[in-house]
Structure formats: structure tokens, C-alpha cells
């Protein structure tokens, strides 16, 4: 037995990779749909959107790259479905160079699904380098950084942009982000212009932004796949479209696998230590 534990302590890390891989791949084929309880910080965003009136405008800032699609895209889709369902209008930017294409794809896809029209129900302003500067400029006037939108249209020619000057004409800023740009929104949009701000971030980032949620600088915070799954369930997305909910099962098993590995590692550690 001790020999086994000694071997276990010196195990090639590729075995660990294999175990993790198996724990991730197998649940892919069996959807259990474990129930997910909504937390306060996620519900806050859902409730805030529900409280909006048709015709209100929200500012939406998706900033995530292909690497973080699994975590962040479900949030983005669930959020856009909810706002479009409420007939709330969306003005969006994509201030992360590797995420502009994704931001545009999400908006177009969701708008098509919900039957929304570009220029009337939503506007995509696109990308400009140096995000913090752009965020500050938009606090004065969206046109300062974006005289034209992503597609090259004159912003003033878009019906939705009439009477929409800066953040103060929107009800909230919601950023789905996987980059440090989240800090710029906290510092320069909320800090300087005092607009209610909510973030959807990756699970790794979530621990960082809890402090801002508690201090009230964020009115809502969605963290990782779990936050996305909670949101999907609140919005009422079901079946294959509820990607985060599906993936939560996988995450459950991956976490279990890691916990079992850690316990085994500790057993081996104590078993071999006694021998010494």
C-alpha cells in the first residue's frame, strides 16, 4: 500500500491531466441539469433590467476574446435576450481588440433572434484603441470617440442615437469582460460619471471584483460559468441554448475530480510521512 502511495506522490503530471480530461469529457454526454440557486449579486442585475421601461437605453460593453467564450458568452446572450425581450434599447462598444468581432456577432445574433432592428433598437459603436480614454470621452459625448458606428454609418443618422448624448442618457452600464478593462469602467465610467455599473467576469476575476460589489461601485456582479448559469435560469433559457447550465454539470465533475486528487495526494503524503 505504502509503495502505491509513494508512487502516487511522484506520479507523472500527465496522468493528472488525463484524469482531469476524462472528468471533463464524460459529463459532456450526460446532461443532468443540476439545480442552480441564484445569488444576490447576480439577481441584482436581472432585477435591475426587469425594472426598466420599454424604450430605456442600457450601455453594453462586451470585452472578451475567443479564449473566454465558454464563460462569458452565455452571460452576454442571456443578458441581451432579457433586454431585447423587455424592449430596452442597447448601445454597445467593443473596446478589446480581440473581442470586437465577437461583440458584433453576439449583438447581431441576439437581435435577429429577438426581431430587433439595427439603428432603432440597438447600435454598435465598435472599437477604438486606448479604452480608458474612450470611456472618459464617452462620458462627455459618444460622438467624441465615435462620430461613426462600427459599420461606418454617421451616428447622428441613426434614429436611436437622437437625444442620446452620453452615459447619463442611459440607465446603466453592463460590461461582460474578461480583461483588465473592467477596472477602467469602474474607475472612469462609474467613478467619474457615477453611472450604475454591473460586470460579468470570468470566475478567476470574480474574486477580485467582489470588493467593488460590496463597496457599491458595482450594483451587480456575475462571476464565471456559475453566474452565467444563474442568469440563464432567471431569464428562463432552456434546453441546448442554456449553455452555461449545461457546462455547470461539467464543472461540477471537474471540481470533484480535483478534490479527489487533492485528497489522494494528502493520503499519500501522510502515509509516506509515517514511514519516515
Amino acid at each position: 500500500m505504502k509503495e502505491f502511495f509513494q508512487k502516487l506522490l511522484k506520479i507523472d503530471r500527465r496522468w493528472i491531466f488525463l484524469i482531469t480530461g476524462v472528468a471533463i469529457v464524460i459529463p459532456f454526454f450526460f446532461f443532468i441539469g443540476l439545480p442552480i440557486k441564484a445569488t444576490r449579486e447576480v439577481r441584482a442585475l436581472y432585477d435591475a433590467v426587469e425594472a426598466l421601461k420599454p424604450g430605456d437605453v442600457v450601455f453594453y460593453a462586451p470585452e472578451y476574446d475567443p479564449a473566454t467564450i465558454p464563460e462569458v458568452q452565455p452571460m452576454a446572450h442571456a443578458f441581451l435576450r432579457q433586454v431585447f425581450r423587455k424592449n430596452v434599447r442597447v448601445v454597445a462598444t467593443g473596446l478589446f481588440q480581440l473581442g470586437v468581432a465577437l461583440a458584433e456577432q453576439d449583438l447581431t445574433l441576439m437581435a435577429k433572434e429577438m426581431g430587433k432592428k439595427y439603428g432603432e433598437d440597438y447600435v454598435f459603436l465598435g472599437y477604438k484603441p486606448y479604452p480608458e480614454q474612450v470611456i472618459l470621452n464617452m462620458g462627455e459625448d459618444f460622438r467624441k470617440s465615435f462620430p461613426t458606428d462600427y459599420y461606418g454609418n454617421d451616428v447622428n443618422a441613426l434614429p436611436m442615437m437622437r437625444g442620446l448624448k452620453n452615459y447619463s442618457d442611459t440607465k446603466m452600464i453592463v460590461s461582460m469582460t474578461a480583461v483588465s478593462g473592467a477596472d477602467y469602467w469602474i474607475r472612469s465610467a462609474h467613478g467619474r460619471y457615477n453611472i450604475p455599473l454591473a460586470l460579468g467576469v470570468t470566475a478567476v476575476m470574480a474574486t477580485d471584483y467582489y470588493t467593488y460589489y460590496q463597496s457599491g461601485q458595482l450594483f451587480a456582479l456575475m462571476g464565471g460559468l456559475k453566474g452565467a448559469a444563474e442568469y440563464e435560469q432567471m431569464v428562463g433559457i432552456k434546453g441546448k441554448a442554456a449553455k452555461a447550465t449545461l457546462r455547470m454539470d461539467i464543472q461540477s465533475f471537474a471540481h470533484l475530480a480535483i478534490i479527489i486528487l487533492v485528497i489522494l495526494g494528502n493520503l499519500a503524503y501522510f502515509a509516506t510521512r509515517e514511514k519516515k
Binding site: R13, N266, Y269
Partner: peptide, 22 residues
Amino acid sequence: QATMFALLAFFIASAAFRAFRA
């Protein structure tokens, strides 16, 4: 990119196995 980022799960598993000892 997605593949590279996904590698993190495997690195976390091996780091956790090695580092989390009582």
C-alpha cells in the same frame, strides 16, 4: 486560443495536487 486557455484547467489540477498538502 480556446485550447490554450483550456489548458489552464489541467495546470490547476496538477498544481493543486502538488501544493494542497496538510
